[in-house]
């Protein structure tokens, strides 16, 4: 699909100069922050889960659903309050990878397109970012299921 457009010599020369001045992404620090914040989000999830088991009538197996729902609720709330994006700038993948990132992707898109109405705005655009996660998630599950059926 993509035609390989080779850069001309002058483009190459320029790109060399440009990359010299480019401020590189602090990958190491970003990874560390993502590791710590992501871990904290998961720890919070574990605390909530334990809370459901301890204070309510949930077991190890059934506490998962209300825990995820709680985290999604919190992520949506902080998205609506305009805090989540600032947190995301700091935490990067730390807030994007856990279920909170998925909730944020949907809630932010829903808020953003509210002005275009509920049907063509909110509903149609809610999955703008999150939709690809679902597509690839379902597709991978399908492939894995086939492999499992054939091999085991």
């Amino acid at each position: 699909m993509e035609k390989s457009k080779k850069p001309t010599p002058s483009q190459k020369a320029y790109q060399k100069i440009a990359s010299k001045h480019e401020i590189k992404r602090p990958v190491g620090i970003n990874c560390l922050k993502a590791f710590i914040i992501g871990g904290l989000v998961c720890t919070l999830g574990q605390l909530i889960s334990n809370g459901y088991i301890y204070f309510f009538d949930f077991t190890d197996k059934t506490a998962g659903d209300p825990t995820v729902a709680t985290l999604i609720f919190l992520a949506c709330l902080f998205t609506g309050l305009g805090i989540y994006d600032k947190f995301g700038q700091f935490a990067g993948a730390g807030t994007a990878v856990p279920v909170t990132g998925f909730a944020n992707a949907m809630a932010s898109a829903a808020i953003e397109h509210r002005t275009e109405g509920f049907v063509l705005g909110v509903a149609a655009n809610m999955f703008k970012l999150a939709g690809s996660v679902i597509v690839f998630g379902v597709f991978s599950a399908f492939i894995i299921a086939i492999i499992k059926t054939l091999l085991f």
């Binding site: 998205t79 989540y84 947190f87 995301g88 700038q89 994007a96 944020n104 932010s108 953003e112």
Partner: peptide, 13 residues
């Protein structure tokens, strides 16, 4: 780019 409230990390560039 992304919705305003989406928590994507912007690079320093």
């Amino acid at each position: 780019r992304y919705p305003t409230e989406y928590g994507a990390q912007k690079p320093p560039t």
